[in-house]
Every structure is written in structure tokens, then in C-alpha cells.
Design a protein around this nucleic acid. Structure first.
Lengths: 189, 189
DNA sequence: GGTAGTAGCCTAGCTCTCCTAGGCAAGCGA
DNA sequence: TCGCTTGCCTAGGAGAGCTAGGCTACTACC
């Protein structure tokens, strides 16, 4: 009997692809085992449980997204950087809906601290250097930015904007304009 | 044998409460049947399938939230109305995490059109009357508002803000200040 | 090069969920 | 009172998650 050559890395990648096709909630250990031509019980040699699989998809997605954002940000500043960041974020979410959804699961603190989420946070702060905000305004602005991006992307995906004919691309770029405006002129107390 | 007196309404309410306690993903037909002292198969007399249960939770939540927002909005205008809306939204999400999560599931178009989601949309537009925006700016602003609220609330819940010590309440009120500022001075092309 | 150990798969089997089919009894309307 | 609908039941199949224990192929070491 030849060995299938299953590794955690190959499992995670296949799981991520499966998630993009059928949704994270349908990423099952059994389905994955079928794809590898292996019995489901065999995967528990590589995996603690089904939850670990989803966590691994999330970590993969965080790392991939951080890479994309870093590439998009290279050599840009100010509004240019803001728009590049935002588009990298949204494009990734649209190309990889399952991976993106997996990113939203609750990571336990130490896992989160070791993830690419921190690179993410650093880059977000880097953008704001162009807007010259000091603490605690900077933290508030980071949180608002992230909220806007995540909110827009996730509402767009679940069809929250469907009832109005206006193209979402247009609303997106106007939202970025508005965000740039408010960052440029952050209201002081 | 006495009848248990199960109705769709009672089922939906119990399911919503269960969702708030253990999360929507753990709202199961079997668990609900146990709560009613009934066999799981019996619930399929009232319910088409498990998915319908989640849809019903979502519709209940949409209606409840719309009621709250309407009450919060009464007699207010301008920034007052914006803040009242936002707080009603966030408070509901925090008091009812399971219901809120259920709201995010993909409703098919006709169900969505018949839901309280439309009241929601109307009220959001009503707020913007105070800011005197004309189309298509109004639609863009509505989408940005909704994105910011939803994004903030959902990142807050999944712990996306945990890594920074700044109290989320403070960031929330500054975000609303910023949103008010940008709506007051919506950037023109 | 034989052998011990481990890594990678297997079968068997348990529990839980979702859901269907078909049966029986309670309570209502004629 | 008789029947018919309503609301529950039992039985059972399919698929998912997971554990226990066994067998085999490769690896490392003497």
C-alpha cells in the first residue's frame, strides 16, 4: 500500500481551496480525506480536531493577506497607500471568500499574537503615519479604518447592498475618499 | 399523552435565546427538541429543515433591531440621531450576539425584501436627511455608515481590538464623531 | 544487513446531527 | 358520535466527528 503523503501544509492548502469553493462551514475532515484518497480517521494523525483545520485556514489567510498588503503598500504613502491597502484587502476577500470567512473566527489570544495579524496591524499604523495622528487618535483611526473595510467587504458578500442599484465599486471608492478626508481632518475633541 | 404545544413562534424564540447563549452554529434541531421535551423528528412537523430555523432567527433579530432603532430615533435629528442609531445597533449586537450573528446569513432575495431589513434601510436614509446629501452620495454614505457599524461591532466581538489597551467604548465614540464629521462635509468629486 | 522503533495509514465502532417514512392518539367540526 | 386533521411518536438511514487499537512501510542504528 503506497502512502498518500499527507502533511499538515498540504491539508491546510486543500482545506483553504475547499473553503473558497464551498464555504468554511462545509470544510469537513471527511471531505478532505476523500480528496486525499484516505480514510477520515487517518487525518487525525495530522490534526487534533476539525477546529484546528479552520484555525489553520485562518492563519494561512492572515499570512497571505499580509503579504499582499505589504506588496501593495511598497513605495506608497498618504491616500495612495490607503487606497492600495483597501483594494488589496477587498480583492483578497473577493477572490478567497472562504479564506476570508475563516479569518473571522475567534483565535485564542496566544495564537492570534503569533499570527500574521500583528503584521497587519503594523501596516495599518504605517499608513496613518502619512496623516500625522498621535495617540490615542491613531488607535481610534486604525479601528475605524479596519471596521470600514471589514464591514464593507462582508456586507457586500452577504448581499447587504443588493437592494440598491448603485454599483458597489463606486460606493467603495467614494467611501475611501470619505475615509481619506476624515483622516486628513481628524476631529479633535 | 399531553401535547407539548410547540409552535413556530415559540421555537424561533427559544432558538434565538439558545443562539445568544451558545452561538448560532450550535443551534441544533436536536437541542431545541430536548428543551421542549419532544423528539427531534417531531419538530420537522413545524419546520422544513435546520436552515429554516436559522433564517427565522435572523428575521426575528432584524425585526427586533428595527424596533429598537425606531425607538432610539424618535424625536432626534442630526448627530443626535446618528449616535442614537449607532448605539442601539451596537447594544443590540452585544446583548444578543447569537441573534446578531444569525442576521448575517445570506437571505434569499424575496425573503430579504419581506424582512425588517427594509425598515432598517429606510431609517438609515432618514438619518441622512439631516446631512442634506443627494443621490448618489446618499447611497454611498448609507453604505459607509452601515459598513462602519457592522465592521466595528463584529471586530469587537471576535476580539479584533484586543491587542490594544485603548477602551473600545472610547474608540467607538470617536468613530461616531469622525463619521458625523465626514457626513457633514461629504467630499465632492 | 538485520532489527527495533516510529510514522502513516487502516478497520471497527461509538455518538451526534439531520431528515424521512409511517403509525397512533388527541381533539376538533359536522 | 364519527371521522379527519393535527401533533406527537418510533424506527432507521446517511453523514460527520472522533477514539482505540492494529498492521505495514520506512528509517536509523548497531
Amino acid at each position: 500500500m503506497a502512502r498518500a503523503g499527507v502533511t499538515v501544509e498540504r491539508l491546510t492548502l486543500a482545506a483553504a481551496e475547499l473553503a473558497d469553493q464551498v464555504g468554511v462551514e462545509n470544510v469537513t475532515v471527511a471531505a478532505l480525506a476523500r480528496q486525499f484518497g484516505v480514510k477520515d480517521a487517518s487525518l487525525y494523525f495530522h490534526l487534533k480536531n476539525a477546529h484546528e483545520l479552520r484555525v489553520r485556514i485562518a492563519l494561512l489567510a492572515l499570512a497571505e493577506l499580509a503579504d499582499r498588503v505589504a506588496a501593495a503598500l511598497a513605495g506608497r504613502a498618504g491616500k495612495d497607500a490607503l487606497v492600495a491597502f483597501a483594494n488589496a484587502y477587498r480583492d483578497y476577500a473577493r477572490e478567497h471568500p472562504g479564506r476570508y470567512a475563516a479569518m473571522q473566527i475567534d483565535l485564542d489570544p496566544e495564537t492570534a499574537a503569533a499570527s500574521a495579524g500583528v503584521r497587519h496591524a503594523e501596516m495599518t499604523r504605517a499608513i496613518l503615519r502619512g496623516y500625522r495622528l498621535s495617540e490615542p487618535d491613531q488607535t481610534d483611526a486604525v479601528r475605524m479604518m479596519h471596521s470600514t473595510f471589514h464591514g464593507f467587504v462582508s456586507l457586500e458578500k452577504t448581499g447587504g447592498f443588493r437592494h440598491t442599484p448603485r454599483p458597489t465599486d463606486d460606493s467603495w471608492s467614494r467611501t475611501l475618499d470619505a475615509l481619506d478626508a476624515v483622516l486628513t481632518n481628524w476631529p479633535s475633541r
